[in-house]
Each structure stands twice: as structure tokens, then as C-alpha cells.
Design a binder for these strands. Structure first.
Lengths: 123, 123
DNA sequence: CAAACATATGAATGGTTGCTCAAGTAATCA
DNA sequence: TGATTACTTGAGCAACCATTCATATGTTTG
């Protein structure tokens, strides 16, 4: 019997659907992978970061270019670039005082495209 | 001259990079599209919702199946299903007392795949 | 070297979000 | 009809997050 050692409430469905539920359980990727996936999408889940990524897909830019482009504070942009860098979506190089940022992943645009397909379907 | 009517601080880069910045500005999708994209990815940016979507990609399941599968409260799952339904990622049908949920978008898996490619590249 | 410039960083803050708990709806069953 | 089952919903709360503000770092320039 399924559901005997369960710590949360359940209904009879689990018994009825035992086979399906077990099958699904067996095909789920490891917990850690799903967590990492969520962490990645969390980075995409902010319009400021989306805009930064989109801009950097068009050209290499410095922090103040991006700040100007998005009409935002350099500090705010810097904080977000930090998040993008930690997610390994963005890299940077120094040229004197100026730090240029660019995409560190060629298929960021492909993730965007998949998202756009969904949005457009919603009408 | 660029940057004259600007509401936030800028540096000389904007003048130097004027052409590039203008080019990028011209190629950015409308504000609203980028906002919608972020809203969509926000939905993917939670491991509980990722797990639910993954499970539903394997089989149609009722709320308590999912709650059992993820070892979580029916209430918690129900709240998340609501978010997924609002994002038009999930649909449901009633069969007596039981409500079955399934994916409402065939390429959810494709979005996952693009994300996984990135994660795997990180090593 | 001091001043100016480009960016980073830490603390503080207001807003959001995911879960819990308690109560509610909706269908079935006895 | 009243009890039970499956699910939903709203309020409440703790944790998180994006921006701001003040300050710090690193580089060039005079």
C-alpha cells in the first residue's frame, strides 16, 4: 500500500492511481536538477534582467550604457549584473575605467524564443 | 547629443557609445513583451511548480496525487496549480469529486530542455 | 598625489511570494 | 439529508528580492 509512511494528508486517489504515481515518480529528474532549473528561471523572471540580457544579445555594453538604455540607476544595474554573472549568463572584461559586459551563453535567445512562443499562443 | 533629457546619472560612455546604444534601443522588443516574458519565467522560477509541470508532462494527475508525489499539502499544491493555470500552462477537468490536471502547452518540455542545456554547461 | 570617473558593494526598505491554517464549495455516498 | 471526500480560497506570516542610498574600490588624469 502506498501512502503509509506519508507525512502529509492524502486521499484514496493515491491508492487508485498508485501505478501512475509510481511511474511518474520514477521518471522525475533528481531533486537537485529541478532545483537548479528553478534557480535559472528565477533569474529570467525579472523584467530588468530580461532587458539586460536582450540588450547584451545585441551588443557588448558597459554598465552605464545599460543604465542609460533602461533609464535606471547604475547601482541597480550593477546589482542585477551580479546576479546574471552568478548564473553564468553574463561575463565581463575591463578596459581602463570601463567594464564591458556581454553574454556568456549563446542560447539565451533560444530560451527567450521558447517563452515568446507561449506568450504569443495566449493571444 | 544623447543623454540630455535623462532622469538618471550617466557617464561619458553614452556619448561615446551613442551609435551602439541607439542601435540596441531600436532592436529591443516592446516593453510589454519583455514584461510578459519575465512574468512567464517567474512561473518557472519555483521548484515546486517545476516539479508539478514535470509530473504533469508524464501523466494527467489529480491534486492529491501531486501532493503525495511532492510530499506537500494539498492546499500548497492547489495554490501553485492556480498560478500555473493563470499562466495557461495547465488545464483541468472534473470527474466527480476528483479534478484532474494536465499540461495546456506542448512545449513546456522544450523550455525545460533549453534551461537544462545551460545548467549542464555550468558543469 | 588629489580629483574625477566607472563601477561595486552593504545596509536598509518596501513590495512580493510560498506556505500554513482555517473555513468554504462541490460532488458523492450512506 | 448529513457525513465524507476532494479541492479551493483568503488571511496571515516569514522569507526573499529589487531598488535606493551611502560608501568603497579601482583606474585614469592633471
Amino acid at each position: 500500500m502506498i501512502g503509509k509512511t506519508l507525512s502529509v494528508e492524502t486521499c484514496d486517489c493515491n491508492v487508485i492511481h498508485e501505478d501512475i504515481v509510481n511511474k511518474v515518480k520514477g521518471q522525475m529528474p533528481p531533486e537537485e536538477t529541478l532545483y537548479d532549473l528553478a534557480e535559472l528561471f528565477k533569474v529570467f523572471g525579472d523584467s530588468t534582467r530580461i532587458k539586460i540580457l536582450w540588450a547584451l544579445d545585441e551588443a557588448e555594453l558597459c554598465v552605464c550604457d545599460i543604465a542609460f538604455l533602461l533609464n535606471m540607476t547604475q547601482s541597480a544595474i550593477s546589482h542585477q549584473l551580479r546576479a546574471l554573472k552568478q548564473a553564468k549568463l553574463v561575463k565581463n572584461r575591463r578596459e581602463g575605467k570601463v567594464i564591458y559586459y556581454s553574454l556568456d551563453d549563446e542560447h539565451v535567445k533560444r530560451i527567450f524564443e521558447q517563452g515568446l512562443i507561449h506568450i504569443r499562443e495566449e493571444k
